[in-house]
Design a protein around this nucleic acid. Structure first.
Lengths: 201, 201
DNA sequence: TTAAAATTTAACTCATAGGTTGAACTTTGA
DNA sequence: TCAAAGTTCAACCTATGAGTTAAATTTTAA
């Protein structure tokens, strides 16, 4: 990649970030390409020199967000922790990725139905892969008798729902830091999975 | 209310239901008034004989959804149960109301940022009231030493997030009924609140 | 029966936003 | 230096959808 290509790639990324910001603030439809352009002191025409379509911009937000989440979960899977500790790390990592790339991930969570069929399939595949890894961790915990025998998919949806909602209410000025909250969530959401008192069985 | 007024009210309700359906399927912006009209074999002009604006229709979805949730929680509060049982009932009732009026509640959850300022305030007030009642139940449980001393608002957001996400994945054809799922959620989400073993303290 | 009130509709206005174009301007490298 | 390639922009096209209107049609009740 030469200098020109690098510069173009950087600009494409800036456009993507600006789009993510506006998409997450106002929703996909209410954010206009002109606003995205204005944010970067461009005109609309210049934006279209770098992108194909607004829909494509939305897709890239989804894709980048999912890639960040996948990178994170692969990293955690390779730590070789016990299932309960690993699941807690997954929850913490999910929440912290979610919030550190707030705009990107919010776009993905809020405007998933705006994605056109062909794009949506790609994202759904990534999401299935992500949830598949979590399912593997939980099943492993059940086999090792660390976790109770629970309906795995329901538990995953319960956890994802709780975690994904954080973007709707968390404010950094609040009484708890994000790290405190993600730790609290991890503990709270893993505890009901744990096999209680073995001696009573 | 005479016959004419009753009929007009009924039609307004039908329009609202059709709007909720389309808003929840396609999002506020992608659903058009003409589609809503077509759904009911009306023309756009007739719709405007009954409504003021599209925004107003959105607001009514939000308002009706919140009113259903509030009716439900008032009913439960008046049952006079112990805090842990009451909280479980609240979770079950929340999920079942959510799913029985899927379109209305989905509109509220998915397109809240589409509401204009003045309307949004009214809905936020109702939501605060709703969450205030749940907070009261949890605080009561803490005082009575049934619940651990937890950050109440964080717990409410955790529970609401988990429950509100159900609309995104639940399918009636799935392996569990909605009642089974709402019971599972209630148990799962209340358990971490319970004071463990009193004798060990 | 009939006139007023209620209801419906086709045809309209208007604003907006996605996307295109061709010319102008800038950068680059020989 | 200068021509080709890369980049920017104003002006434009077009589609769409919210909301209006005035006339036509239907309903109601005296």
């Amino acid at each position: 990649m030469n200098f020109r290509e690098a510069r173009a790639a950087e600009r494409r990324l800036n456009i993507l970030k600006a789009a993510a910001k506006l998409f997450s603030e106002k929703g996909y439809h209410d954010a206009t390409i002109e606003e995205i352009a204005r944010e970067l002191k461009y005109t609309k025409g210049s934006i279209y020199y770098y992108i194909n379509s607004k829909q494509d911009l939305l897709f890239q937000c989804h894709e980048l967000a999912m890639n960040l989440l996948l990178d994170n979960i692969y990293r955690i899977r390779d730590l070789g922790l016990a299932p309960d500790l690993m699941l807690k790390e997954v929850i913490k990592g999910h929440i912290e990725t979610l919030m550190s790339e707030f705009n990107l991930v919010t776009v993905m969570l809020v405007s998933d139905y705006e994605l056109e069929e062909e794009y949506a399939r790609i994202i759904i595949n990534k999401r299935d892969e992500y949830e598949g890894i979590i399912a593997g961790i939980i099943r492993d915990g059940i086999e090792k008798a660390i976790f109770r025998d629970v309906p795995v998919k329901v538990v995953i949806n319960l956890i994802m729902g709780a975690a994904n909602w954080i973007g709707r209410w968390f404010r950094p000025e609040g009484p708890m830091t994000l790290q405190e909250i993600s730790q609290f969530y991890a503990d709270y959401l893993v505890e009901p999975l744990l096999v209680r008192d073995k001696s009573r069985e």
